[in-house]
Nucleic acid binder design. Sequence first.
DNA 1: ATTATTATTGCGTAATGCGCATTAATTTTG
DNA 2: CAAAATTAATGCGCATTACGCAATAATAAT
Lengths: 307, 307
Amino acid sequence: MRINFDFADLEAFLAVAETLSFHRAASQLAISQSAVTRRIQKLESALGVELFERTTRSLRPTLAARDFEARARAMLSDATEAMHALGDSTLRYQYQRNEVVNFATIPTLTNDLLPRVLSRFKAEANQVRVNILDFFAGDVNEAVATGEADFGIGFIGIQEPGLEFDFFLDDKFVAAMHRDHRLAGQRQLRWSELADQSLIVPQKGGGNRLLIDTTLARSKQFLNWSYQARYSTTILELVRMDIGVAILPASAIPVAKDSQIVALPLVQPEISRSLGGIRRSGRSLSANAQLLYDLFVEECQGSSLAH
Amino acid sequence: MRINFDFADLEAFLAVAETLSFHRAASQLAISQSAVTRRIQKLESALGVELFERTTRSLRPTLAARDFEARARAMLSDATEAMHALGDSTLRYQYQRNEVVNFATIPTLTNDLLPRVLSRFKAEANQVRVNILDFFAGDVNEAVATGEADFGIGFIGIQEPGLEFDFFLDDKFVAAMHRDHRLAGQRQLRWSELADQSLIVPQKGGGNRLLIDTTLARSKQFLNWSYQARYSTTILELVRMDIGVAILPASAIPVAKDSQIVALPLVQPEISRSLGGIRRSGRSLSANAQLLYDLFVEECQGSSLAH
DNA sequence: ATTATTATTGCGTAATGCGCATTAATTTTG
DNA sequence: CAAAATTAATGCGCATTACGCAATAATAAT
């Protein structure tokens, strides 16, 4: 896929979005106004959408521009940051990896599994530092593929060239609610029983939400959320205060005794995902990384996260 | 700051990094080998670093290339995704905001404050949906500035044009440990008393870590971490299993009774940050957003997060 | 209705990026 | 060890891209 715009186009776009004028944006960027026009036209052509509804005397961003604005900022910021970061003299130290094991994981696995594994790891490799790269699911694969992480723990789904997967366990979606909630005594819940609840769901854009949306669409059900958030922590706190019923993978639910939160399996439809280890193909791990990986394997063999 | 490279350069870079050969990268990209050479040279010149140590017959990525690889992927991915996203027909629906309040917050504020506020909000505005954009601190300001969020709750620090800040409260850094830890009975801790502890700290790259690093550097102390992670959830679980002592802002510590975690104020030096409301200058909030904002103000007036 | 403002477009010029062919360097092979 | 094979770098000519200037057309402001 050819990217037919460049950073200068993004700069022009952001200047126009900020000033709401080609003329003033040109001033700000110290280029001619016709150059601004051309950059915006180039960007519109590349993206296939109109970014600004404009006359010679007024200008208004389109909805597309409002979405694109944050994206443009992120790209420019990334590029700027990359240029700065490469001058950072601490970088060389950071890649002296002899004493640091880097692994990538999704945050929800931290509830129980990770501390147990790290306890055992520390007992065997006391001087080794551990850099826990806790990411969203897609980023785990990427961190492993690029070598940022020695290995990862995450979803097994789409096959990716260059990566190997080891199955650890299945992780089912549950309905989490306060233990005093009127549905809390049931053994399981059908999705249809949640129709009148105040639902708290993962935000659009992540794998969890996508999985929920596609599964419900297949069974012709509609997700009528009242709150959405990105972090399961945020979601769980709302549950703890009995603000609503959350839809989450079981791995996201803490297993503390006397917890105020009850997790009930969701059926009709059931939704689950497979979790496992992710390594680079054909690459061996360092001794310490391999030890940590093996400990994960062992702990998962004796573990089930579907409460 | 002029960005002197473009997406085609990033593509070439990644192809070379993957194939470890200009020749094979050229094949992969269906361009001539000399074009690959020129793009890499352009990128090296723009970044000011050598990316590949190479002879005519062999090639090896530099440390800089290994760092840059993930960044290059992210930028290309962002650009590709932006192009796809603008065609998404659900976008128009998403900006029908009459019934949705969007606010941006840092995740650590979800422990206590957020659920209380939302309980009160729900009682007064039952049909309004709430999109909780839980971000890292820098992203909160950005979400407000770009209009993605109606308002934000985050750090008050660097003044940003176009944004207004309202002070809510001070948030101090504490040492969090298991209640059976040998230091847990103390009233407060000096940093020097942590020298022999297995420390769990926020990952480099975020505001929390930067604040810790700069403050300790000023008092000539060294942070000797054993584990680092991004999410306070991850960190707190390690504390709960008594794997080590964490350095976190008080707002990140859950306030549940009978918690297994004890938080002790850290002194010599003390580190704290101011939290508050963030709004766009000169813009009024919708009635529902204003109601939610006012509820945050009220709850913070009667709250202190320094346990 | 007239004036002022501003986005668009044509033109000429400079800069950029390409493939082809060649050269230089360095592994590989016998 | 020498010869052959491979491959990154560079010169050249050509095509494409991007710019500022000047002019035009459109549209708010007065």
